[in-house]
Amino acid sequence: MKLQQLSLFLENRPGRLGAPLEAIAAEGINILTLSLADTAQFGILRLIVREWDKAKRVLEEAGWVVNLTEVVAVDLLDRPGGLAQALKILEGANLNIEYMYAFSLRRGDKAILIFRFEDPDRAIQVLLDKGLHVVDGDELMSFVS
């Protein structure tokens, strides 16, 4: 149920985002979604790609430090309160969210969010118990192909 997310360290200055994206594009790897977290001095680029192991290798060979993290994709109702409801569940179970970001595509009336949990396995269990839909890798890939 967990997804592999790639993270890259970037300096926060013009032009730094282009280079790693070009490196994986050259290998024909499509980015399903990304998020960029930044401070005044540096940033972290987080990527969800289909062939994460190949992308990781390509980036590392090009000299980037790449970190692999397990994240959880959750399918939520795309309407007011949809996210709040999910967060309430997580809060009730004392699950700590390190960070989250929205997936770039929607499916019907659903929006997909990516969560980085301290404890992803327990988070999945809680979400499933509460009847939320956790999107696994294969299902995610099927949306974009």
Binding site: Q5, S7, F9, A37, D38, T39, Q41, F42, I44, R46, V65, N67, T69, E98, Y99, R116
Partner: peptide, 18 residues
Amino acid sequence: EVTPEVFSDKIKALEDVR
């Protein structure tokens, strides 16, 4: 230079290292 040993996907962890 950031090394694999200290790199993290979390901003707070990197700020801590800094």
